[in-house]
Design a protein around this nucleic acid. Structure first.
Lengths: 113, 113
DNA sequence: TGCGCGTATGTCGATATTGACATAAACTAC
DNA sequence: GTAGTTTATGTCAATATCGACATACGCGCA
């Protein structure tokens, strides 16, 4: 019997698994953030490696310098789409892009400066 | 001296490299499309592998069944963000995600059915 | 000092993307 | 058959994201 307490909980607006869902969501969120971070790092690395200013890169992908700055700053208003576009436009190779998806990257700043 | 013809062209609204930019853009676009395609395939594979219905997956990522359908159909209104979120939520491992970024995947349908 | 260059930050109107919903279609199993 | 399950498609109001612009900051150099 799993009815009694369960039903009371559900009556109160809870469902079984809600905790797991919550944690799962957090975990997924974390993965997403880590992924974005890696890619952002890769963008900056690739841009500098190819000796491009933010303006150069912006022109390449028909965006604006401020967008590039926001990308590299990890601004909340930039999508994964834009990050990956920037990565591609910056001249990163397919291999670079792929390896950027390893989330176990070292801290970005360290590698950059 | 690269001034003469160049200046005339620029006066006409052209800049050097515009053709390259054009091709570059197309190439970047193509890379982006290929990437999305690979990921979409990976989502469907992973979802089925984990025996999830579109509704299940939708609940996991707090989205809707119709969105999942659109994702897997390659609808124009789905962002890379959502695709990757779906991939993560479907239970794909980090390794799965990474390997999904190899653009030289085989056709999706073949593998799926 | 001031000037040029690259970058950071805030704002804003226009556009893209979202979840939700309705509904149809495809497919099983009875 | 039809009832149940899964997936596909269209619509829409709410929100997220966009490029563009202004502007400030840091930094090297004359």
């Amino acid at each position: 019997m799993k009815t009694n307490k369960l039903m009371r909980l559900e009556a109160a607006g809870w469902t079984i698994g809600s905790t797991e869902d919550f944690l799962q969501l957090n975990n997924d969120e974390a993965q997403m953030v880590a992924l974005k971070f890696s890619l952002v790092c890769a963008v900056k690395k690739s841009r500098i490696k190819h000796k491009l200013s933010q303006i150069d890169l912006a022109q390449r992908m028909k965006s604006s310098q401020s967008r590039i700055a926001k990308i590299e700053a990890g601004d909340a208003s930039v999508s994964l789409d834009l990050i990956v576009r920037a990565l591609i436009a910056s001249g990163a190779s397919t291999r670079d892009i792929q390896s950027a998806f390893k989330t176990n990257e070292r801290a970005c700043d360290v590698a950059l400066k």
